[in-house]
Design a protein around this nucleic acid. Structure first.
Lengths: 185, 185
DNA sequence: TACTCACTAGACCGATCGGTCTACCGAGGT
DNA sequence: ACCTCGGTAGACCGATCGGTCTAGTGAGTA
């Protein structure tokens, strides 16, 4: 794994856990065992550019996982509920430090780091399309699958936020139930 | 308004807009027109303590507003939908810089600032109870109003996050519809 | 007047921030 | 052998971070 790769990977991990501002370049470089010079060679625009790249990677990785979960289950509903359970497991296993990998960064960036914010928006957009596409495919007659997808994503994001702060997976369990209501109720 | 008051007020405003790490003491002190010494007189534990106080204030303020909205509408459903619309208005009016006033801080604090994180948790708890209480009162037979309240709060928080990042109130409009489904569907 | 004490005022601290700069290394081409 | 050049290495920069410290101020009390 080359230096650039290691830097992106480390940054991604740190962004997911502690967000943008709490992640210093010194920490990234130490964990990636890379010198400072390499950072500005690979990312001429500096920290924000590297973070944007890391966010895109996190987004794609989770996008693929999401796709897989949805394809691996008989219907969208159970697929989404299994996603909620996956997040619950991840939260507990990480002592409530790993929720949505980009949420913290997305909020931090939203009014001072346009490039980073754009990367986050792009990631959310992708997740929404994955979900909407699967909805369209399973339920051809549903109107506005994008809206349904966005609503479910909102619910999951919100419950991840509450769960993390509360240090309890209850909000995710509630969301799991609510997903059923939203899709079929 | 005394010095302490001004500091809390300024901190609250800045936390809502830019979060915890992006809010430096220098900025707070400048905007509050207070000297550095006063900060550590009023908040011996420093920045985190002051931020926790500001978060509690933000929480109570929004809690009261929430209560008022719910009491001022004929039923919980229309009350909550009006809350969603209020947030949509606020987001647009602020050029998408003002969503949930504590969400950014809550995520940032969740794994490195326990006192601050606790204040955030407390705030979310309060909002949940306000909503649950109103639910219990309007629909005595509903089971687990706390769960319903938490679910709706998750949905609103998530849609505020998406809306802010997307710079569009669409997610909030979708949430408004979904609130109806969750409560009555 | 003299003493107290809650509070203001801001100089100062070491640490860390993100970013720049120059020197260097080493594989590939000629 | 020599040069080029993609990339490493890390010293160094000014700015800013949160926090500490001492001096001073001013209203209240005896």
């Amino acid at each position: 794994m080359d230096t650039r790769e290691r830097m992106v990977e480390v940054t991604a991990r740190l962004l997911a856990r502690q967000g943008y501002h709490a992640t210093g370049l010194a920490q990234v470089l130490a964990e990636a065992e890379a010198p400072r010079g390499s950072l500005y060679f690979h990312f001429p625009e500096g920290k924000e550019q590297m973070a944007a790249e890391a966010v895109r990677r996190l987004g794609e990785r989770l996008g693929v996982a999401l796709q897989a979960k949805l394809d691996g289950k008989p219907d969208v509903r159970s697929g989404l509920q299994s996603v909620a359970r996956m997040f619950a497991r991840q939260l507990e296993a990480s002592d409530f430090t790993l929720g949505c990998p980009v949420a913290t960064t997305a909020l931090e960036a939203s009014d001072e780091a346009p490039a980073l914010s754009a990367a986050c928006a792009q990631v959310f957009e992708r997740w929404t399309s994955v979900l909407a596409e699967r909805l369209r495919q399973e339920r051809p007659r549903v109107t506005a699958p994008e809206r349904v997808a966005r609503t479910v994503l909102s619910l999951i994001e919100g419950s991840l936020l509450l769960a993390r702060v509360r240090r309890s997976v209850e909000p995710l369990k509630d969301a799991e139930v609510a997903i059923g209501t939203l899709l079929d109720g």
